[in-house]
Amino acid sequence: MTDIDVGGRVRVDRDRLLRILQDHGVHLGVAVLLLVNIAFTPHFVSAENFRTQAVQVAPVMIVALGMALAIGSEGVDLSVGSVMALSTSLLSLYLGYGMWIALIVAVLGGVAVGMAGGALVAFVGVQPIVATLALMVAGRGLALVLLPQLKDVRDPTMASLGSGDVLGVPYLVLIAAALALLVAFVVRRTTFGRQLLAIGDSRPAARLAGLPVRRVLVLVYVCSGALAAIAGVLATARLTASDPTSLGHLMELSAITAVVVGGTPLSGGRVRVGGTVAGAVLIQLLTATLIKHDLPPSWTQIAQAVVIILAVYAARERGRR
């Protein structure tokens, strides 16, 4: 009697554990990595190091925010890395007309790519993975046509955008935080956000309920494109150079990882902004930990893979109940 009771409790605990893992596992992971580093990594606890980590993670985080929207709509956006490259090319080309014009043109480039992807998905009915794969190839190509090789960016305002700070908090981090709050607000409090979740959960039901499915889908990819372009601009400012060959390379995978690890299901219908932010931080910390302990970079990739598998496992086990 008693031991059966215990058995029952263990089972309940397992369910709860999985739920906690999916909902908060990413925060737990961040906390554990922080503690491990504080305990074992020399020079980890320093303002300088925290700044470096935060500045490095900011562009990934911004791209992941857009990716979370795309995944929430039961889609995916593979073009984000190429959009970053395109925006850095446009930025260099138009910097002669003034920084603000260059910034606007660069972001509009991302919007245009997003519009193309959204139109392919919403109006032509191409699967998101295929539509954005095409744009990923085309976008990188276009970026290289516009700017065939690396070019230094010698604009003092751009340089200060990349390295300046307010009260010790880098601009990059402030911008990323502001965008995260904005996206969270959009998801939670706007009709667009609600409609996006409904469309991601059940497209036929959303359609029959009279939702503007096509408009919402186009807007999702426009947001993702714009956010990726902003990330491209910020990365350019930090590096003070435009390198369309390598900027944003494999960024789509990092972004998807951050989103999935953050607990947003790939099946759509849910967007977890806080989780996505934490997911990006988790990946960053993981990489930093391994590098600081002089492990080869290939280990980082293996560690990332393990984290992804854990995240998907928690989500799947929970879905099975």
Partner: peptide, 13 residues
């Protein structure tokens, strides 16, 4: 089930 409800959203939504 397929065309009516949005199963993952709440009654309210």
């Amino acid at each position: 089930k397929a065309e009516g409800i949005v199963p993952g959203l709440s009654v309210r939504e």
